[in-house]
Design a protein around this nucleic acid. Structure first.
Lengths: 102, 102
DNA sequence: CTAATACATGAACATGTATTCATGTGATGT
DNA sequence: ACATCACATGAATACATGTTCATGTATTAG
């Protein structure tokens, strides 16, 4: 009604939903949480903590990289993953504080 | 590796992902944005701004209510929707500020 | 009581996402 | 060169989600 309207531009809205959808998964939230603690971690290190199949983890990581949430650096046989922007982890703290979650 | 572990309990992790997944949709983000501006809105009012089918909107709203993001109050023929916790909109501001989105 | 308004619901279908399994690729050690 | 380690990829399958359409229910007006 009247002068009410969505204050977010449609393109940004879709991009926001797109990235958020990627965050919205237990394994991927865990990865963000771990990368907030360690700066960078290899796939094997993540695997050891998360205890999931290597292939599944790799798919999740590729997914997160496609969305720009993480980036990679290769060092010999190892590939290190790190957060593109550590402020992504604020989202998790944010939602953990919401009534809907508690 | 050493004493590294996910700092979020498994149950909370799943709940967080579950609620986040619900936020992660352009229409539902828009609804949150509108309800941040107006305190409460009827389905028709939302429909007028969003310009989507009544049925689709209703499904989205039911979805959001199931997840505890919104609540309802009936007043005559109208059903008002309002945010359970306005701090949910912080998430959207949060992610909009992230590199991955811009 | 009947019709209209405002909203909800269920089934069907389309589309998207998660997971597994098998296999591929790049780097290193021998 | 070959084996091994660390990781990536693709196809297949299973599962979840979004959307539409038809229909149902609650409330009010006449």
């Amino acid at each position: 009604m009247s002068n009410l309207k969505v204050r977010v531009d449609k393109k940004l809205l879709e991009r926001t939903a797109y990235v958020l959808k990627c965050v919205a998964h237990p394994v991927r939230i865990s990865i963000i949480d771990l990368l907030e603690q360690r700066e960078q971690l290899t796939v094997s290190q993540l695997q050891e903590v998360l205890r999931i199949e290597q292939s599944l983890l790799s798919h999740h990581l590729t997914n997160m990289r496609d969305k720009g949430i993480v980036e990679t650096r290769r060092e010999g046989k190892h590939v290190f993953y790190f957060l593109t922007d550590t402020s992504i982890s604020n989202i998790i703290d944010c939602i953990k504080g919401c009534k809907a979650v508690r």
